[in-house]
């Protein structure tokens, strides 16, 4: 261990080989024990039962007019729901994948048969600000989608990153259509 290892008084000479096995078992078990002790402490910081129970929300799409976007809260995060116009869908679908920093087809980002609805986690993938563009009066950037005021990232109407420092597209949360006008997020 070190140069200052215990200098034992006479009669205390150690016989290392003989003791090794038991010591190993004891040491190994102690490590397991301490690990098992630490895990509950760490796990207590993970989402608790009541937080997890709230992890899905239902939302009625009917009141959202074409061209309009709304923001709802899911797990404490803003979720963008945008009712896209036919022209917007067309633009989004016609973009060449080679023009995209994080290539993704528009069709993969919406639910089949519901391509007028785009649902996104409204958090800029750069550093976590909430982009503008859901309100009609907001700047939507050069690509008609969303514009992040913090560092100038721009997203198109499919939520794909088109300009600025953001490294990835706005993520699509897990959701499903319960009826044609009702979705369940989470």
């Amino acid at each position: 261990m070190s140069a200052t290892a215990p200098t034992l008084p006479d009669g205390h000479a150690q016989d290392p080989g003989k003791r090794d096995f038991l010591k190993l078992v004891a040491g190994f078990s102690a490590v397991i024990g301490v690990g098992a002790l630490a895990w509950p402490l760490i796990d207590s910081m993970n989402p608790s039962g009541d937080v997890l129970a709230l992890s899905s929300v239902e939302f009625d799409l009917a009141p959202v007019a074409e061209g309009q976007g709304v923001t709802i809260v899911w797990r404490g995060k803003p979720i963008f729901v945008r009712h896209r116009t036919a022209a917007e869908i067309k633009t989004a679908e016609s973009v060449k994948l080679s023009d995209l920093g994080d290539p993704a087809k528009d069709a993969d980002r919406v639910k089949a048969g519901h391509s007028q609805w785009i649902v996104l986690v409204g958090i800029c993938t750069h550093l976590g600000c909430v982009p503008l563009g859901n309100k009609p009066t907001d700047p939507r950037g050069d690509f008609g989608g969303w514009f992040c005021p913090c560092h100038g990232s721009q997203y198109d109407v499919s939520g794909r990153m088109r300009h600025g420092p953001a490294p990835a597209n706005l993520p699509v949360p897990p959701y499903a259509f319960m009826t044609d006008s009702r979705i369940k997020i989470g």
Binding site: R19, L22, V25, A26, S29, A30
Partner: peptide
């Protein structure tokens, strides 16, 4: 209980 026995043996 196991730890107690092992530690005592050591």
């Amino acid at each position: 209980a196991f730890m107690t026995c092992v530690t005592y043996a050591v």
